[in-house]
Amino acid sequence: MTESFQETINKIREAFGQPESFIPLHEPRFRGNEKKYLNDAIDSTFVSSVGAYVDKVEMMLSQIAQTEKAVATVNGTAGIQIALKMVGVSEGEEVITQALTFIATANAIKHNGAVPVFLDVDLDTMGLSPDAVSNFLEEFGEIRENGVYNKKTNRRIAACLPMHTFGFPVHLDKLILVCEKWNLPIVEDSAESLGSTYRNKPTGSFGTLGVFSFNGNKVVTSGGGGVIVTNNHSLAARAKHITTTAKIPHPYEYVHDEIGFNYRLPNLNAALLCAQLEQLDIFLKSKRELASEYQQYFSKSGIHFRTELPETTANYWLMCIELETRKERDLFLSASNSAGVMTRPIWQLLTRSAMYSSCQKDEQKNATFLEDRIVNVPSSAR
């Protein structure tokens, strides 16, 4: 372990007031009405997919995202799958996305029977690059009567799915212009960016639909869960219908008008999430304070700490540093984890996974650079 690594580990321990015990990467904080609301849900006997807390979650998320509608789902992956389906993604079609992302982004595409096209990210956002999308479409795109097609594969390109990496928003203005030129709907994978904004507008509200995740390691959690947000009332109604087994409303009859999905968020999970959402601003403030401390320390140590861009507000879900080389990255990962301070590398590019290795991709120059250097450090609200 080098002296510089030990200094960084000591700083992380100091930041969390934990001189010896294990420090996780990101753990939830339950300091509000979690137990009260859970007990209330249990007492109501509505513990499954119907209940007051499901309705309340949808109302709260539409307010936070500044959208007119929200639809709760069992997790973020299911939410993305349905959101893509809502914009017309069908079997055998293509969706443009990034290879530098959690695997759920690509899995949601495949769950629709569609095929991901992996394009590069920007170095500053670590998210899908509008220039990469534009370059790809200029080379391979062809506008036909019923949409834009990939000249290489002859498949229709049905949507664009950017992911806001670690809560840092992609360059949305530029991406929207590119997608409008090619008439491509945008679905925002906002799983990691609850509380982040781009030009003072919440992420998730820019695309036709956006999707948040509430897994146990997110800024706020329902244990598992997701929410689709949109300003399109008809798409929201259809998403609600299809995620609740496509059951036609009736006081007692079970009649279903199409093959639907059992992707409903249980009321128990919604109760937990309501209590967490009440504390969102507190958690975000705490995380920003931690990010500021990290930034001051790392700027003096010569290590690049990733910060928000001027036109954005990041939620600092997972904070990260950029090391000089892959070797230095690996040495730091080994030293910190051996010392009981949990750190992890950014994801391996999905194009290296057996399931996605044959998918079309571009050079991935920026994504490879980041894959070799980015490390997440402990980021929990304190």
Results as ranks from 00 to 15, higher is better:
residue 158 A to R: 03
residue 176 I to L: 07
residue 221 T to S: 10
residue 170 V to T: 15
residue 242 I to E: 06
residue 161 L to G: 01
residue 150 N to A: 10
residue 213 S to D: 00
residue 245 T to C: 05
residue 176 I to Y: 06
residue 195 G to I: 10
residue 234 S to N: 15
residue 188 E to C: 09
residue 179 C to P: 12
residue 171 H to K: 15
residue 206 F to W: 14
residue 202 P to E: 05
residue 227 V to S: 03
residue 150 N to V: 14
residue 212 F to L: 11
residue 189 D to Y: 13
residue 187 V to I: 03
residue 246 A to T: 04
residue 184 L to T: 08
residue 242 I to Q: 03
residue 182 W to N: 02
residue 182 W to K: 02
residue 211 V to W: 03
residue 169 P to V: 02
residue 220 V to S: 01
residue 170 V to F: 15
residue 177 L to T: 04
residue 178 V to L: 06
residue 243 T to H: 01
residue 153 T to R: 15
residue 236 A to G: 11
residue 151 K to S: 10
residue 176 I to M: 11
residue 231 N to Q: 13
residue 150 N to M: 08
residue 162 P to S: 02
residue 229 V to S: 02
residue 188 E to D: 13
residue 243 T to F: 01
residue 160 C to E: 13
residue 155 R to S: 10
residue 235 L to K: 14
residue 236 A to D: 10
residue 237 A to G: 07
residue 186 I to E: 03
residue 241 H to P: 01
residue 237 A to F: 07
residue 246 A to N: 09
residue 245 T to H: 06
residue 150 N to T: 14
residue 202 P to D: 07
residue 197 T to M: 12
residue 231 N to K: 14
residue 210 G to P: 01
residue 179 C to K: 14
residue 209 L to W: 08
residue 198 Y to T: 07
residue 241 H to D: 09
residue 230 T to C: 04
residue 174 K to G: 02
residue 153 T to P: 13
residue 178 V to F: 03
residue 156 R to M: 13
residue 175 L to I: 07
residue 225 G to I: 03
residue 219 V to S: 00
residue 224 G to Y: 00
residue 151 K to P: 00
residue 153 T to D: 12
residue 202 P to K: 10
residue 186 I to C: 05
residue 156 R to H: 01
residue 154 N to E: 11
residue 203 T to L: 01
residue 185 P to C: 04
residue 228 I to W: 02
residue 191 A to Y: 03
residue 242 I to P: 01
residue 216 G to W: 12
residue 176 I to H: 11
residue 204 G to L: 08
residue 221 T to W: 09
residue 165 T to Y: 09
residue 200 N to D: 10
residue 214 F to S: 08
residue 237 A to P: 00
residue 180 E to L: 15
residue 182 W to V: 09
residue 215 N to T: 05
residue 174 K to D: 05
residue 214 F to Y: 13
residue 161 L to M: 04
residue 238 R to N: 12
residue 192 E to M: 13
residue 154 N to L: 04
residue 207 G to R: 00
residue 157 I to Y: 09
residue 177 L to C: 06
residue 247 K to G: 05
residue 232 N to C: 14
residue 245 T to V: 01
residue 164 H to W: 09
